[in-house]
Write a protein that binds this DNA or RNA. Sequence first.
DNA 1: ATGACATCATTATGATGA
Length: 258
Amino acid sequence: MRIATYNINGINGRLDTLLAWLADTQPDIVCLQELKAPQAKFPERQLKEAGYASVWHGQSRWNGVAILSRDSEPVLTRRGLPRDSHPSQSRYIEAALNGLLVGCLYAPNGNPAPGPKWDYKLRWLKQFTAHAKQLLALDVPVILAGDYNIIPAERDVYNPDRWRNDALFLPEVRKAYASLLKQGWCDAIATIHPDKPVYTFWDYLRQAWERNAGLRLDHLLLSPGLAARLKDAGVNRVMRGRPKASDHAPAWIALDIK
DNA sequence: ATGACATCATTATGATGA
């Protein structure tokens, strides 16, 4: 079974790109972020015709998350986090499918730091971490995939010093990520690729893609039972090089189930 | 430090992103 996460940066503006990628790579489960579409403008029909059933949490202009599933209907278990301080921001959706519980997240960016957006990011990560703990306690296979907006470590950024004071890399968010992992989650990409940098994002600016000036921001976290089934992981870098690409590329894992 | 580039919304400019 293959599961992917992709910050699509506008699902309607990039629907052809998304459909081509689905046809090429045929992931079983997909987590999407930054739909940038209101609930009513989600392309449910086109995805259905491509063989994917969807649940989604839309929002006009910004944010928005969705879970797609091939061969099965995802059963929605939650939209938004418990005790969400900004419930109007669509940043979390969760569904049961294929015997798994899948959480799809789009964490706040947090810039500029310090400031209210930074405070919101730390608060959101705290709520997310508390929810993740609850999910682990259920003792079912869980995957938490999405755009965490966190650079976990120095090796996950082309030039750490350039990002030292950025909300993606400040010690507080790296600590938040570390404490999440300490609950027992497995960072799939870091586990499969412990040494080499594996970027998932390249800025549109300053020819970041051409220079491979990338960041690893998109993560797939596995509960312990699933971690034992992890076979492979990677990034579809080719998607970032296409015309009109999202600034993120899809990150994927392969699990030894079914 | 600034701005380069992209999204969507609304129509030439603004908010947001990372």
